[in-house]
Design a protein around this nucleic acid. Structure first.
Length: 132
DNA sequence: ATTCTGACA
DNA sequence: TGTCAGAA
């Protein structure tokens, strides 16, 4: 019984400490999709509230919209997790395709369980791709 | 009284 | 992000 959307934005505002402006803005950015009443008013569920709280934290931790979007979608699929090997492959592909790897934070997701193995394999991969 | 969308001194 | 307008 937590998927039912019942709270109007005003309640969510007090429950999360986020302004209505922010709550609506994050929705525009595709971070959440609250239900709508027939009168076009937003109705949030507990799940939405938790999501907003997570957004709030990630924001405090200095993440941009893209990063948060990635983290959120990651947490949504957190159920059926893929084998580490496959995850590692995806991470490598993401990093190799993302031009802003060295300096900025990557816009893609990166589970940190086997980060060591990742960086190791990645460095080798990069080494091959980078003939000095 | 509340919320919604669009806009900007 | 805040905030005001005009409508619902």
């Amino acid at each position: 019984m937590e998927g039912i959307s019942v709270f109007p934005i005003g309640i969510v505002e007090t429950k999360t400490g986020l302004s209505k402006r922010q709550i609506r803005y994050y929705e525009q950015m595709g971070l959440l999709k609250p239900a709508r009443t027939k009168g076009n008013q937003r109705r949030y569920s507990e799940k939405d509230v938790k999501r907003l709280l997570r957004i709030k934290e990630l924001l405090k931790q200095g993440f941009d919209i893209q990063g948060i979007k990635a983290k959120l979608s990651e947490e949504s699929q957190e159920t059926s997790r893929e084998p580490e090997d496959i995850i590692v492959e995806k991470e490598i592909l993401n990093k190799l395709n993302d031009p802003i790897v060295g300096n900025r934070k990557i816009t893609s997701l990166y589970p940190v369980s086997n980060r060591a193995a990742l960086t190791e394999i990645l460095s080798e991969k990069v080494k091959e791709e980078t003939p000095e």
